[in-house]
Design a protein around this nucleic acid. Sequence first.
RNA 1: GGCGCUAUCGUCUAGGGGUUAGGACGGAAGAUUCUCAAUCUUCAAACCCGGGUUCGAUUCCCGGUAGCGCUACCA
Length: 514
Amino acid sequence: MLARLTMRARHHTIELSPFMPESQPLTSLGPGPRVRFAPSPTGFLHVGSARTFIFNWLYARHNGGTMILRLDDTDVERNSQSSVDSIFKGLKWLNLSWDEEYKQSERIELHRKTAWAIFEKGLAYRDFTPAHTGDAEKSGAQGTWLFNPGAREVSREESDRRAAAGEPFALRFRVPRESGQLVRFNDAVYGEPVKAGADIEDFALLRSDGMPTYHLASCADDADLRISHIIRGQDHLTNTFKHVLIFEAAGFAPPQFAHLPLLVAPDGTKLSKRRHGSVVSVTTYRDAGFLSAAFINFLCLLGWSPKNDRENMSLEELKEVFSLEGINRSNAVVNFKEPAATPEEAFDPKAVWLNAEHIRGLPVEDLSTRLLPIVRGAGFNVTPEKMLRITPLIRERIKLLSEVLTAADFIFVDQLPPYDPAELIPQKGDMAMAAKVLARAREVLAGIEFKHDPLDQALRAAALELGVKAGQMFQPIRVAVCGRKNAPPLFETLEVIGREITLKRIEDALQKIV
RNA sequence: GGCGCUAUCGUCUAGGGGUUAGGACGGAAGAUUCUCAAUCUUCAAACCCGGGUUCGAUUCCCGGUAGCGCUACCA
């Protein structure tokens, strides 16, 4: 009894999301399928979980159904409010809405009721065996554990008596394993998996503190919430046999299942924070400068295919073509690189490419608004108007939003960082040519309109006069103005930078030569 | 260990009894441009192994192997 109180006291109160529309009563069930995403708040939102959420969402929205978010928080030891917050943070970035929201810790009475109903039918029994110490089991040689010796044979009378006397027990499902019984279910992805009851252990329904286990809570809620399709990770495929047993024992028809192939690391192992670091967290993608639409697009291509060679797709298109038939059965590698030289290299090259594609597909105004906070966040004072003029210069040159800082750095800073004067030397030229070009440019640019066409004409004419190639004319100017050889096209750049700063930087370059 | 699932280029995938096994990313080469990027063209790159069924298997079946998952009073 004391132990139970301690447990209760330790249980965290978990707040529901602030961006949830009022939850509707179940009395008005819509027509379409009802699907749910049921994360357990034990850490941040994982990319694998995000994909599960996305597939559920796509299925619901494609079919005019209902998307439900349920916090599976029956593990009081490992849940935390900060995990809940962090999961919502990830979901918020994904920007996909849900229609109803629940948390399991508020529905414990329902779970218990379901468990005891199963017990009353004789399909579950009290197990008074003390709990295993999990660690010993894990490290030791594994046998096949199915049930604790003698536990299922305790008579109902003795069971009731010991329970009444206060002896702690777990409630276990009495798996039918006699006479070669088979358990089967229908899976939209894996067909009809079958397993012998003889190979399923007597799993727990209720812990000795009276709290429901995941299997029980999940099934009781799925039934109560009228979930029609359970779309979840393949790590639950084997658990599903137990779930089917629960549904049937409790008198519910099992829903349609669809198990998704797992997302794995390049080494083939399941993605985990401990082993693979922050690349498995959704917010890492957000912070690195991914567009959520591109991230969603990328995730959809892992384990699912539209079968028509389309890859770059908007959310709208994905919603249009998504179907369970396109899901395949083998694990997909998220091809990230562990020690990465640049942020871009850390991610799956296809994710980066898709992001670049989505960036290029964005209207300039839209892109500009997304870029502005990043630039300002880095401490640069840029007006929205200026940002709007900068954006076209870099739109085709950045793969991640955050790269705006390196792609347009020379526009944001007042003072160019130091560069090697040798950079000013044009192809097949020398320092004297650089000096000649810059001196002439200084004169020409002093009295010309800073617009693309006039700049183009004047500078080309100057090259002709000087007897140098156009490229030899442009390159020293580019380096003088941008501080490096690789930069956006010259005339557009000068237009944005303006006469004053351009002349100043050319002057500075000339000083370096002398 | 037991049980379940899976197996096509480096990666994501299409395909399916007879195909030059298709696409994409990445890689290489070239074209184009004032550099870079973008764009375009070209190239290299795959059916895990062994049996069977069959006139013919990468495709169907069986076995092996490998990988993954589950095997908790975690989810």
